[in-house]
Amino acid sequence: MTTIRPFRVDIAEAQIEDLKARIRAARLPERETVDDWDQGIPLAVVREYAAYWADGYDWRACEATLNAYPQFLIELDRVDIHFLHIRSPHENARPLILTHGWPGSVLEFIEVIEPLTNPDDPADAFHLVIPSLPGFGFSGKPTETGWDIARIARVWNDLMLALGYDRYFAQGGDWGSGVTLEIARQNLGACAAVHSNMVLALPDPATMADLSDLEKRAAARMQYYQDKESGYSSIQRTRPQTIGYALADSAVGQMAWILEKFRNWSDCDDSFSGFSRDALLDTITLYWLTNSAASSARLYWHSFSNMGFDPVSVPMGGTIFPKELFQTSRRWAEKRFSSIIYWNEVDKGGHFAALEVPQIFVEEVRACFRAASLSG
């Protein structure tokens, strides 16, 4: 048996004071020469958030939120994995593992924990396992190569088995979707069904002459990503160590690097409507305090060259959010997934669905897994 050790977040006050000092001493570039976000996050936005981060934001509140839930460490494949494990009060609740991506964390799921574990209808109840990806947050940082999404998927299966769940569901977005769909592709026998809010499937060439409205939007979003948003991923998949030096040394640089993605990938305006300022800074502060700029970026280096779209037979469901970066239609998805048990397009939300539109996210997860069974 692998030892499962209790864990609590306890950041030294000296680290917090050092962070505030770095924010106040930051050297910023000159103002952008455009009146929008086309050259990146505007100087005025960075100044506003940095001022609040240094003198108004309270990390201890985030720390208390995390510590209100049972947290643990377990060593799997020679790396410590941090995870939250919240058991439902309902006896027949079903196990569900939720996986975040970049620049996300376990904090994405805070608002969905209570409705998923303790719903009005006990039939919708889940026991939740919410791990931090290797190299992210309070998980350990791999010291060897090979930690791609396929390896993480195997480790996640081992984690669920170590917790006594020999049959479970899985859900994820961003890299969490890659891990979740890889769990389904590997089909090691324990995962009953999966749900993704970023379904990874290729366009069907046979449909290109007659695209649906969704497929046209998907093509437009992909073009936008390639033209305007792919720079960060090109750096992280080719030079994660180099970008790590810059972000590990500059708190404001780390903030700008992440904050821009929340605005550009979400169903929000320039004021970050849909997110609280504290919630955004919680995630950014977590990356800073755990010094995980380079270690989280390495997931791109490990996984981009190994991304596959092999067939998946495990039952799956997908929810398409309108401002998600990577979108697909059901008929495209059917070329990869032979057992689609649930499919829906919603009218609000983006890449960080659990954080941005938690009520919609919860209903989509429930609806998907109502159609699935842990038996068989």
Rank of each mutant, 00 (worst) to 15 (best):
E32T: 02
K348E: 12
Y245F: 15
R60K: 14
R151Q: 00
L188M: 11
E17Q: 14
H100C: 10
V179F: 06
E182F: 00
L374A: 07
S177T: 04
L19F: 14
H100E: 15
D166G: 14
D282L: 11
T283C: 06
D270M: 02
C62Q: 08
Q171Y: 14
S88I: 03
L211E: 08
R237K: 13
A54E: 12
I235Y: 10
M160E: 01
C268S: 15
P115A: 11
G56L: 02
S234Q: 14
H302W: 13
G253M: 07
S375W: 11
R60A: 15
G317Q: 03
G140L: 08
V365G: 03
T2R: 06
Y165R: 04
R22H: 06
T290P: 07
A206T: 09
H127M: 12
V314L: 08
V346T: 13
M316I: 12
E75S: 11
R94S: 10
F109I: 13
L159Y: 10
H195Y: 07
I81G: 02
L181T: 06
P311C: 08
A372P: 02
N157V: 14
S233R: 08
Q241G: 14
V346I: 15
W156V: 09
G101W: 04
T283W: 00
T143W: 02
N264Q: 13
A153G: 01
F72I: 14
G104T: 06
E30H: 13
T2H: 05
L299P: 00
K228V: 07
L163A: 03
D120F: 14
A153E: 00
T117N: 07
D121M: 13
M316Y: 10
T285V: 14
S234K: 07
L161Q: 07
L96R: 04
F138W: 15
T290N: 06
G317M: 05
K228D: 07
L280E: 04
I130F: 13
Y245H: 11
T285Y: 12
Y245K: 08
I284T: 02
W332N: 09
F138L: 15
R151E: 00
S339R: 11
F352S: 01
L355C: 07
N157E: 13
W175V: 10
V194C: 03
A192Y: 03
V357R: 04
S375V: 13
L188C: 10
D77Y: 05
G350Y: 01
S105Q: 06
F83I: 05
R298G: 01
A354P: 01
R277H: 03
R330P: 01
G274S: 02
E324L: 11
G104E: 06
P6K: 02
S329Y: 05
Y342H: 10
F369Y: 09
H195V: 08
R31M: 09
T145L: 09
Y245P: 11
G56S: 08
N92E: 12
F7C: 04
V346S: 09
E356T: 01
N67A: 15
A93L: 08
V314K: 01
L374Y: 06
D166I: 09
T238L: 11
G350W: 04
S105H: 02
